[in-house]
Design a protein around this nucleic acid. Structure first.
Length: 711
RNA sequence: UGGGGCGUCGACAAGCGGUAAGUCACGGGACUUUGGUUCCCGCAUCCGUAGGUUCGAAUCCUACCGCCCCAACCA
């Protein structure tokens, strides 16, 4: 990279960048970089397209090049103007500007002329066979293709037919123009691919001017060539089309655009195919293409995602050729990062619980000035009213607080953000026993929220003044699917994998008065809750707030962990069963350490494990391994299995394990380790409280026989 | 019974013969008037497997294994 045009961002390179740098160095493209984003206007753009947009526009921009927006509108029966406008809007929203906007249909005349030339040269011919006949003659992966009877028809005859095809003399399917390449090619795309077909259909741009339309494989390379695109970046599935791409350009003797393929973006917990998305819409499982739970750009925009976050995400994901599925949490990370930087902080109570401050004068209203961003003073401040009756979040009060709880509870003291310290004296319940009100007292010396005497108050709660807060609706969105790969499980429809809690609508929320006139699309952080934006369903009287994404919730994690810690099977417990819905020991794929249950492992996954009773016949330390023990486990299979388990720290003297009846995941793929093959995994659980040992193996009663199934 | 592509930490992903970057996730800690942010620390003796070449291999060679794509008049 000795020349001036090098990547501006020193981020790790990618292979396309390398190719461009190389091309620039050798002057292959005349020092020019031109890319294009070529959507077919037959649907809405989604997050997967966003990556492609970022790659095309990003790469060109990085090298001072240009990017065209080109609609690949060669199939009139599938396409519509409605989509071209939506696509334009999405690209613009993402923050990109195209150098030129084109349509493949603009080139129809040119393309037609090229086709005629091919016929004259004898490299294309009109085939009058039926679709089935052509398919049959084309052969398959193992059978070479054979010519149809029209392959050697004189050029003049083909030309005449082709002109009459254009003139509309024939019905759909009567003839087709084919490239004459190689019927015996191992690449099916080269077995005389169809170049033109007859379609008496109205085109969204050319109207009824044409009744023959070029195929993608013909139109795409030539459109690239016409626009002198230097690097035509597309996805992996077009790799085997590249020889045809090159053939078309060579035969047409045009600008040598080069096709480069990369892996398209896939995300966990998300369905991206047009077919699946349409099904969600048509079945009414979502409210529409821009339902904030959809992966379309229109939906993400409505949900409150920012273009910056999506671009940063795309950059981080990288460009490579390996099929991959990116963690949804990576997208959320970039979203939060951007939102954290830009959003003002405000207070809103989603599930109100009334608090009456008994020692605060009735009717008095104090106003406090609170910063809109504790970190960035440039956001300014706003006024927040404070009075005798407030609302706090229901979730912030527990009558019987768990361990480590530092929010409100009877007799406990918390801080009301920016206001004061507050102590709960009494809990008022309705006839049904529901908590309906808290009677509290405040410390008048703590105004502002400071501790007057240095006493430590760990919890800080958000709140609103009951009389001043404005009612609002909140739509709490979560992932649409509860499984990592929706639709991937055999025999199960993705509809069954929808997350039943993907939308929770709360209609009785209260937000601080400053928010009463927030504009549609405006984004805020509701302190301690998440990022929200105003939905277009809002009315003057009532705003509707979309939750874009929650804040990270360490407390939820702590609570989940302590709930999961309840032992499913204690050491020496009798029955060989692990019935708890939240098993504490998860099968680590690496068998290097029995981990506490990782959140990604679902109950379904756990159910797939074949858990069997095994008796440890020998156990020894591995001299050069920090964590591993080498076990020989008898599963009643007539031999022992060798299993490496990360239990060394828990059992410094492995001899005590010999003879122990343990639970073994028997159907895991054997894993080759440095010291040999590990053929399974011994389940272990986190130690009981106070137990210094990190893990204990799950054991079963003496009556269990090696090989017994554990349920 | 064919052709093409790809296999590096739980997920992405650098690396291009000189001895495994980074990010997310995860775990631990500091700080904190958001259990947020921020900041520290930890997290692949190993690069699908097996051989080979080399002083030296994730990088080169060979074989094997696994996954993805291709037999539309879709794009």
């Amino acid at each position: 990279m000795s020349e001036d045009k090098k990547p501006t961002e020193a981020a790790s390179g990618n292979f396309i960048r390398d190719i461009i740098v190389e091309d620039l160095a050798t002057g292959k493209t005349g020092g020019r970089v031109a890319t294009r984003f070529p959507p077919e206007p037959n649907g809405y753009l989604h997050i997967g397209h966003a990556k492609s947009i970022c790659v095309n526009f990003g790469l060109a921009a990085q090298f001072g090049g240009t990017t065209n927006l080109r609609f690949d509108d060669t199939n009139p029966t599938a396409e519509d103007v409605e989509y071209v406008e939506a696509i334009e809007e999405d690209v613009r929203w993402l923050g990109f500007q195209w150098a030129g906007m084109h349509f493949a249909s603009d080139y129809f005349e040119q393309l037609y002329q090229i086709a005629e030339r091919l016929i004259e040269r004898g490299t294309a011919y009109v085939d009058s066979s039926s679709e089935e006949e052509i398919r049959e003659a084309r052969g398959n992966y193992y059978k070479k293709g054979v010519p149809t009877k029209h392959r050697d028809r004189p050029a003049a005859e083909s030309l005449d037919l082709f002109r009459r095809m254009r003139a509309g003399e024939f019905p759909d399917g009567a003839h087709v123009l084919r490239a004459k390449i190689d019927l015996t090619s191992q690449n099916m795309n080269l077995r005389d691919p169809v170049l033109y077909r007859i379609r008496h259909a109205h085109h969204h741009r050319t109207g009824d001017k044409w009744c023959i339309y070029p195929m993608y494989d013909f139109a795409h390379p030539l459109s690239d060539a016409i626009e002198e695109i230097t690097h035509s970046i597309c996805t992996l599935e077009f790799e085997s089309h590249r020889p045809l791409y090159d053939w078309c350009i060579r035969e047409a003797e045009m600008f040598p655009s080069r096709q480069i393929e990369f892996a398209k973006l896939k995300l966990t917990h998300v369905l991206m195919s047009k077919r699946n998305l349409r099904e969600l819409v048509q079945k009414g499982l979502v409210s529409g293409w821009d339902d904030p739970r959809m992966p379309t750009l229109a939906a993400l925009r409505r949900r409150g995602y920012t273009p910056e976050a999506i671009r940063a995400f795309a950059e981080r994901v990288g460009v490579a050729k390996a099929d991959s599925v990116v963690d949804f949490s990576l997208l959320e990370y970039h979203l939060r990062e951007d939102l954290n930087r830009r959003c003002p902080r405000v207070m809103a109570v989603l599930r109100p619980l009334k608090v009456v401050i008994e020692n605060f004068p009735d009717g008095e209203v104090r106003e406090l000035s609170a910063p809109l961003s504790p970190e960035d003073p440039s956001h300014g401040t706003r006024k927040v009213p404070f009075s005798r009756e407030l609302y706090i979040e229901r979730d912030d009060f527990r009558e019987e607080p768990p361990k480590d709880w530092f929010r409100l509870a009877p007799g406990r003291e918390v801080r009301l953000r920016y206001a004061c310290l507050l102590k709960c004296n009494e809990v008022i319940k309705d006839a049904a026993g529901n908590v309906v009100e808290l009677r509290c007292t405040w410390d008048p010396n703590s105004w502002g929220g400071t501790s007057p005497d240095g006493r430590v108050v760990r919890g800080t709660l958000h709140w609103v003044s009951a009389a001043h807060a404005v009612p609002a609706e909140a739509r709490l969105y979560d992932r649409l699917f509860s499984v990592e790969s929706p639709g991937a499980t055999e025999g199960r429809n993705f509809v069954e994998e929808l997350n039943p809690a993907s939308l929770e609508t709360l209609t009785d929320c209260r937000v601080e008065p400053w928010l009463a006139k927030a504009e549609i699309g405006a984004r805020f952080q509701f302190e301690r809750l998440g990022y929200f934006c105003v939905d277009r369903d809002s009315t003057d009287g009532k705003r509707v707030w979309n939750r874009t994404v929650t804040l990270k919730d360490t407390w939820a994690k702590i609570e989940a962990k302590s709930a999961g810690k309840k032992p499913v099977a204690k050491e020496g417990s009798k029955a060989p069963r692990a019935t708890a819905p939240a098993p504490v020991a998860a099968p680590a794929s690496s068998a290097t350490a029995p981990l506490p249950l990782a959140a990604e492992i679902t109950i379904d996954d756990f159910a797939k494990l074949d858990l069997r009773v095994g008796v440890i016949r020998s156990a020894e330390l591995i001299p050069d391994a920090k964590k591993l023990l080498k076990l020989a486990v008898d599963l009643g299979e007539g031999r022992t299995r060798q299993i490496f388990a990360g239990l060394r720290s828990s059992y410094p003297d492995p001899a005590v394990l010999v003879g122990t009846r343990v639970v073994v995941a028997a159907n895991l793929k054997p894993r080759q380790m440095k010291w040999g093959l590990s053929e399974g995994m011994v389940l272990a659980a986190g130690g009981a409280e106070g137990d210094p040992r990190p893990h204990r193996v799950l054991t079963v009663g003496d009556d269990a026989q090696p090989g017994d199934k554990v349920r």
